[in-house]
């Protein structure tokens, strides 16, 4: 028996919004420690890694580990039926081929449930090597989304260059070029507004705008985003989900020919 209850179903909806444009389907691996999802997009350029810890749920029970393969467009349809203040309870029997989502309104005057068919997905798990990153940039997630959106108008790629002085986002296209430089802030009072750079070595890598834009769909989950970079290694874009876990995206850099 698997049962997970989240008072704030809107958080799960936000997670879904953050992954459904990258992945058509994905397996949710449920165990005693929580729910995990790891999946690459169809072109094997990016990877989504979601980790929700069991004690972040308001109720969590998982007697036997189970893998639930789901079509994310179908799952989105289910969550479209939930109210923003609803509580969600996710339930599945051991070895079941369906999962049930129950939504309860705040005052419990409305209770709805949706049963969705599970899929058998051929999932391959990837081993992600531990990396000593050259640069780790922590910045407001809304600022990152804004920069990626702005620069995407001009080119297909964004070069992210990080030095001790700050981080520079650059693009070039047919109509010209665009650059955004962010300096490290000293505003320690407001951590969520700070730009904090932890640099071992300067690094400059090129990434596809299309994917960076899809990652910024996670912006509503967290005030801050962390970008971890190292030469010839995929970029890691991490959003912490308060009290529940984290959502990480990995993106292979573009390689100069």
């Amino acid at each position: 028996m698997f049962e997970a209850r989240l008072v704030n179903s809107a958080t799960f909806k936000k997670i879904l919004d953050a992954i459904k444009d990258l992945l058509d389907q994905a397996s949710f691996d449920c165990s005693e420690s929580g729910i995990q999802l790891q999946a690459m997009d169809n072109s094997h350029v990016s990877l989504v890694s979601l980790n929700l810890k069991s004690d972040g749920f308001d109720k969590y029970r998982c007697d036997r580990s189970l893998t639930m393969g789901m079509n994310l467009a179908s799952l989105s349809k289910v969550f479209r039926c939930s109210g923003s203040d609803d509580t969600v309870t996710i339930k599945a029997q051991d070895d079941a081929d369906t999962v049930t989502f129950m939504f309860e309104s705040k005052k419990q005057e409305k209770i709805s449930d949706y049963e969705m068919k599970l899929m058998n997905l051929d999932q391959e798990h990837l081993g992600i090597p531990e990396t000593e990153f050259s640069c780790i940039i922590k910045m407001p997630s809304a600022e990152f989304a804004r920069i990626v959106r702005d620069l995407s108008q001009f080119g297909e790629s964004i070069v992210i260059s990080c030095t001790k002085e700050g981080v520079k986002f650059s693009t070039q296209g047919d109509i010209g070029t665009g650059n955004v430089k962010l300096a490290q802030t000293n505003n320690f009072d407001k951590e969520e507004e700070s730009v904090i750079i932890d640099m071992q070595e300067p690094v400059s890598l090129t990434f596809a705008c299309q994917y960076l834009n899809l990652f910024t769909k996670a912006t509503p989950l967290s005030n801050q985003v962390t970008l971890s970079m190292c030469d010839n290694v995929p970029l890691v874009v991490e959003y912490q989900i308060p009290d529940l876990g984290h959502l990480c995206y990995y993106l292979a850099p573009k390689i100069e020919e």
Binding site: V45, E124, H125, G127, I128, P234, I255
Partner: peptide, 14 residues
């Protein structure tokens, strides 16, 4: 010009 890398070359399939 640049080409898009794939993750398969960085991560091992378990």
């Amino acid at each position: 010009s640049s080409t898009q890398g794939r993750l398969d070359s960085f991560f091992k399939v378990l």
